[in-house]
């Protein structure tokens, strides 16, 4: 039940809370549009302070979005566009401030804080060392750890703090970060490829296929993930959820038309299991609508409508979908 609510809301949501970007602003070339979004996401909306112009509905943000797209269609590079807008509105328009003498203190602040913190710890550590160790009796009475353990703990803490801080600085400066991420992704992709090859020879290894589907989903190789999920559904024809998972993913990714044949196969299995359940009614209606079989689609969704509790928040939306058929 919960899942179907989520799905139906998923269907409605893109209409209601899309980006601030409106349809007429969008560029036809998806590659240019993608660049426009990346550029816009780096620019502060000057009248709303901590939103990017990509997210803001303010008039000035809209103007800047259009300007970014106009310059893009003129063939300017990302850097040229960012510089052009920066020359008119100043560094403040950039959400990430550039490194220059005025911002040096800002950029160096993590290192400074680290140095000060490290200094305090070091001072603390030194005064601890110069103290004579307390008599053993006193240690027993106070029940505290011997000094050496405490010093070791302190050093360990310092080490962790330093490495965490150092890592933070590296990430902030963008050093090594991208390279590491790329390497990691390459490793994971390699491992997943190995798994996929092995599973070709062992089509019945259920656990393996489940692992593969998860991995593809994480790597956002959507179609591969859907294929793996469909394979799992075939391995477990009696399992309700094994059939609904790929259907949901196909729907969420907008792949309904491409996977129509496979979806029909899944639907047939769901119908055989229980043709009354809400998920089945929803998906059956969805694919009937895709095939242009309006009467059938209406029948499925009407049945779904009648099966939902009276106070269900999606009734109204469903009614609208039915009316729209």
């Amino acid at each position: 039940m919960m899942r179907i609510l989520v799905i139906i809301f998923g269907l409605i949501l893109p209409i209601q809370t899309a980006l601030a970007l409106t349809a007429e602003e969008r560029l036809d070339d998806p590659e240019l549009e993608n660049r426009a979004r990346i550029i816009s996401a780096q620019m502060r909306c000057l009248v709303c302070q901590n939103q990017s112009i990509e997210d803001s509905e303010a008039g000035l943000a809209k103007d800047l979005r259009i300007e970014v797209r106009r310059l893009l269609t003129q063939g300017q590079s990302d850097t040229e566009i960012i510089t052009a807008i920066q020359q008119k509105y100043g560094d403040y328009v950039l959400l990430s401030p550039p490194m220059k003498p005025e911002t040096l203190l800002l950029w160096l602040s993590p290192i400074l804080i680290l140095l000060i913190g490290g200094g305090i710890l070091w001072q603390h550590f030194r005064t601890q060392q110069t103290l004579a160790p307390p008599p053993v009796v006193a240690v027993r009475i106070s029940n505290s750890r011997p000094l050496r353990t405490r010093t070791m703990l302190l050093m360990l803490g310092l080490l962790i703090a330093l490495s965490a801080g150092g890592y933070g600085v590296l990430v902030e400066l963008g050093i090594g970060n991208n390279q590491q991420a790329a390497q990691l992704e390459e490793q994971i992709t390699g491992m997943v490829q190995g798994l996929a090859e092995r599973l070709e020879d062992e089509p019945d290894d259920l656990a393996g296929w489940q692992q593969l589907a998860r991995a593809y989903a994480v790597l956002e190789q959507t179609e591969d993930a859907v294929d793996a999920l469909i394979h799992i559904a075939r391995l477990m024809p009696e399992d309700w959820q094994a059939q609904t998972f790929p259907l949901e993913m196909i729907l969420a990714q907008g792949l309904s038309t491409e996977y129509k044949v496979q979806a029909k196969e899944l639907l047939a299995r769901l119908a055989a299991l229980n043709g009354e359940r809400l998920e089945y009614l929803f998906f059956a209606g969805h694919y009937a609508k895709l095939d242009g079989e309006v009467t059938q689609a209406r029948a499925y969704w009407q049945k779904l409508y009648d099966s939902l509790p009276e106070n269900s928040p999606i009734l109204e939306q469903l009614q609208r979908e039915i009316n729209g058929l």
Binding site: L46, V47, L60, D63, L64, E67, K88, Y89, G90
Partner: peptide
């Protein structure tokens, strides 16, 4: 009309 001149001047309000 469309705010382009404002953009040239860096106007924000």
């Amino acid at each position: 009309t469309d705010g382009r001149i404002g953009l040239e001047w860096g106007a924000y309000g």
